[in-house]
Design a protein around this nucleic acid. Structure first.
Lengths: 198, 198
DNA sequence: TTGATAACCGTAGGGATCCTACGTATATTA
DNA sequence: TAATATACGTAGGATCCCTACGGTTATCAA
């Protein structure tokens, strides 16, 4: 409720703080892709050479840490969606973007917890990456359903969730083929070339 | 490696043991559907009015407990698969069974950990329910692809995984509509009415 | 019926993790 | 260089996982 002299001039953030933050993200990325997103936060702090309290100060919850770890990649996905929208036809754009999403899942080895954070449903909107990812796929799908012959009664996020389910298997398995086939299967299912019997 | 006088006569299991086992399963079922499959095992034991050691004696791992909890329902699913195979046409049988599977997920509120145990991939075959569920859906799909016009290049379990992904959202959401639409979308994608461009 | 014994049970505890409180140290600004 | 906002680490309570160990009870044989 402060209504004083506007906002403070805002001191420059301390260098050690930002350095430790970066170290934490790096360590968490390595640990999560190796051991899964349920890795002990204390272990992440240890590998970053930082105390556990510092980790909690920078990332109050596990979700905020996960989001920071995958922030760059989700940014790439969002950017790619915009670019594909400009350069490709609606359906092709959607298809290629879904394949990019599969690639993204591939580097994560299909970590279900990551998915839960990123596309875990409408309640998961607390996450910033979540909303941006959702609006990106929303735009792609709605464009495809407007101009192209696609059904419109599918929740766009469900496409991502379905792919996430396929990816949610044990590591070092070649699930990627399955995921790619699933992309085409979903797209083919979306083609509204005839009316669907309920 | 015992090659002695064959097998022991096998004393009848103690009544208190079986009673406690049943109590544990009941408590676990309630706790898991309410709080998720990651619920504390100590809490399950408390709610069952039993010590934690007793829980571990009956169920050495969390997976064995989960399997016991959902044993009955997976049995029902397997039985239904056999029955639908007899009474329905291939594709209709597959579709109805998938809808039953959606119902099954619905009662679990889409617990991702449960799915991980039941359809968590080829490495998850240590679970008994897993193999039986997998062979059931395998049979349904292969029958549909043999007699009906369905593509055969989809791993049957991936259908379940896709549905599981859709179900993997936060509780008390009406995701069931999405899941049902996903069933039809998958089936429509499977219809091999034309060749697919790679 | 009664004793023997296999099977079951709970208490106790080490190790690990989550998360917070609190006093100290350091980088930035004046 | 002095002042202070900011960040840091140690310490610790609470919880959970899982195992070891000795007491207790239900089953079976005599």
């Amino acid at each position: 409720m402060q209504h004083g002299p506007a906002a403070k001039p805002a001191r420059r953030p301390r260098a050690d703080g930002e350095r430790n933050r970066a170290r934490l993200v790096t360590a968490a990325k390595r640990a999560m892709t190796e051991l899964g997103a349920t890795v002990s936060l204390e272990q992440v702090a240890r590998e970053a050479g930082v105390s556990i309290a510092t980790l909690y100060r920078h990332f109050p919850t596990r979700e905020t840490l996960i989001e920071a770890v995958y922030r760059q990649e989700t940014d790439s996905l969002v950017d790619a969606a915009a670019q594909l929208t400009e350069e490709r036809e609606p359906i092709a754009a959607l298809r290629e973007w879904l394949l990019l999403f599969v690639d993204f899942l591939d580097t994560k080895q299909g970590l279900s917890e990551v998915l839960g954070t990123l596309i875990g449903g409408p309640d998961g909107l607390y996450s910033d990456s979540s909303v941006r990812l959702a609006s990106a796929v929303d735009a792609l799908v709605s464009r495809a359903t407007e101009t192209g012959p696609l059904r419109a009664d599918i929740e766009p996020l469900d496409l991502l969730r379905a792919l996430g389910g396929v990816a949610n298997v044990s590591p070092d398995k070649n699930w990627k083929r399955s995921a790619i086939r699933m992309v085409d299967l979903l797209l083919k299912g979306l083609q509204d070339d005839a009316d669907i019997q309920t």
